[in-house]
Design a binder for these strands. Sequence first.
DNA 1: AATGAATGAGGCTTCATTCAT
DNA 2: TATGAATGAAGCCTCATTCAT
Lengths: 198, 198, 198, 198
Amino acid sequence: MKKKAEERKDQVLKAAFQAVANHGFDAVTLQHIADQAGVSKGVVHYYFQNKETILSQLLESITAKIYEAEHRAITEKQTAIEKLNAYVHSVFLSPEKNKKFYRVYMDFLAQASRNPLYREINYHFYENCWGIGCEIITLGKKEGTFSANLDVEKSAKMMRAMIDGCLIQWLMCGQDDLHDFYKQSCLESISTLLTSPE
Amino acid sequence: MKKKAEERKDQVLKAAFQAVANHGFDAVTLQHIADQAGVSKGVVHYYFQNKETILSQLLESITAKIYEAEHRAITEKQTAIEKLNAYVHSVFLSPEKNKKFYRVYMDFLAQASRNPLYREINYHFYENCWGIGCEIITLGKKEGTFSANLDVEKSAKMMRAMIDGCLIQWLMCGQDDLHDFYKQSCLESISTLLTSPE
Amino acid sequence: MKKKAEERKDQVLKAAFQAVANHGFDAVTLQHIADQAGVSKGVVHYYFQNKETILSQLLESITAKIYEAEHRAITEKQTAIEKLNAYVHSVFLSPEKNKKFYRVYMDFLAQASRNPLYREINYHFYENCWGIGCEIITLGKKEGTFSANLDVEKSAKMMRAMIDGCLIQWLMCGQDDLHDFYKQSCLESISTLLTSPE
Amino acid sequence: MKKKAEERKDQVLKAAFQAVANHGFDAVTLQHIADQAGVSKGVVHYYFQNKETILSQLLESITAKIYEAEHRAITEKQTAIEKLNAYVHSVFLSPEKNKKFYRVYMDFLAQASRNPLYREINYHFYENCWGIGCEIITLGKKEGTFSANLDVEKSAKMMRAMIDGCLIQWLMCGQDDLHDFYKQSCLESISTLLTSPE
DNA sequence: AATGAATGAGGCTTCATTCAT
DNA sequence: TATGAATGAAGCCTCATTCAT
């Protein structure tokens, strides 16, 4: 029973992601979501109180997934450089996937600037990302790869700012073939920031 | 005559800006805009063909204003360092103004990932921003302040990515008192990127 | 299930007929139709994509009904004269019914002069009517009742023109008591046309 | 002053005719009419109380013009046959003109079935048309061209019914090249009705 | 547990009409 | 006289939500 319900909710959330990716946050309807999930509109309301509940759980779900992927990527590597590389590569996955995920994510960011609930969810995601940054930077300092006098927390935040800034700029340019340019440039810039003396 | 009409349109656009800032891009209604402007709903349609027209002109208007302010800021300064400083300060204006402007701007970015018209307008804004970056960097190289081997265009893009990334991260944290932290960190990071040898 | 939906659509179409009869084609609103049907406005949109869909289906429905009644009437009779009589009588049903039906029909004709969809539906109705005429005339020629040298198709068209012309003229006079006069005169005229030698 | 006003009203009515011909009775707006007349919307309201006033005066105007043309046509001829010919030819003027005039006229007929004012105006037009019919038939009887036992008034009405029925049927078929067929058939039918013995 | 029919609030838009200039 | 800016009522349509089955 409980299991079935969990599966159902997951099914709806997956459908919601697709639906939001296709139609946009404010254009998506519960009908879109139900259609995408291959269920009736009633089901959606049966498992979720209302539209906002679905969407906030969707935000939680996708930020969790992004973080998991990032975390998995760096765990597999040993050195700070390798981890940094893996991190950035796990963010710049592919034009198609980035487009889909970041479109949805940007929709949520826009909402989050007004909706405290979304903001909180996103903040949690930020904390996770900063955590990854701190881990890499701390290791790099220990290795002697990165500057000894780096402010770890500050650098982690700048690192994430760079990543988001690049990904958004890429997304807004609408040119898939620039994906590699932005990935490389982002990586270079972060490296410079972390290795620059003083 | 013509003048009056222009003023009216401006009045409506200003009201639209306030209304979008308050309610968000997808929750704003023409009634909100009319109320904010202190006019009847009919007036809005008298000066603008439809809702999308208002919103796209609003995007044009605010990106133009942001750019103008940035451009004005750097024009007043002489050295590359001063210009860079002025640029970042003109972006990080104040918590209140940044919040309002960037909320609206983020709404548009979210839309732009799907709407080509918005994307085009934003691209034009990007070009302007990159132009400012290029100007500063070129001057800095000439002065010898910045690294001689910088790729001017690439650096300009990374510069803007850093700025947007920081501003968005600040906005999403919902803490006004971090405004200064992000301004300073952003400036530092860009400086590092531009002055780091090789 | 399907049955229920069909009934609902029928209910709405019937209501639409009443509403158009009462308010006229261009003054009728979806609210009128919903009220007449005793349902909420939403129901109308649930079963019909939009207003035009309702109205075109209404045109199809009423022309089909008129034709069916006419066809049924002539089928029951044997001789050409009897059939002709029955045909005209089935058209000139009663002042009340004619008024309601032809008011609506005239609204559609007015629209049809510009709207190809309506024109097509009406043309189909014309073809049916001409078919009835042809059937009667062909039989009459075979019987020797009607002139041997009649152009069947042309005569069928003139027959219908006479019928519509009379009914419209009657409707426009606004005098119910002339209904019988027009019915008889119409019948006489058609008889004359079909029996006149040469 | 008075003269200027009359000219202005005429100008607006002519524009109204074009506008209704183009957009249809219920889709036409005062802006269409003003544009067509090359004047401002205010002018239209200055010379006409409201929209209905314009439209009813337009109906009067066009029925008067149709009648005048018909009357002029038969006046120029001597014999009943010639007059009848001229009459029908003056009605079936040309595909283009008939389309424009009858579209507008049909719009009014549809309205007239509900609006007493329009109905009255149209009735006056009918009387004029019947008058023409009576004149022709009476002459034909005197000449011995038409059947002696014709009921003049009734025949005049049937004559007009035939004309309107044919013109409407032609209009609804949407085939310009059938214009001649309907004109000839209409004339033949009327001739048959009027010459048939008994 | 699931469906989808029904509701009705609320949005965008059109347009006749008014009125200050 | 003439203009056209401004109003606001009213229409169509969408869609989250409810509820009987």
